[in-house]
Amino acid sequence: MSVEENFAKNSEFNLSMVPSKFASFMRTCVIWQFIRFVAINLKMIIVVRKSH
């Protein structure tokens, strides 16, 4: 509820996607982020390999 009040503060905020409590929590949830860490690394390695 706290972050979505931002919508009211500024009309230009209206085209945004503001994370809910769950999404915010997942962003700093260590277990989930470890999984994402591996996934992002794989994605990055692919791009690095494509670039050389």
Binding site: V3, K9, F13, M17, V18
Partner: peptide, 15 residues
């Protein structure tokens, strides 16, 4: 654009 605007909105940073 949506990605960035969302992040700024979430953090209450006008632009």
């Amino acid at each position: 654009r949506i990605f960035a605007e969302s992040l700024y909105t979430e953090r209450n940073i006008p632009w």
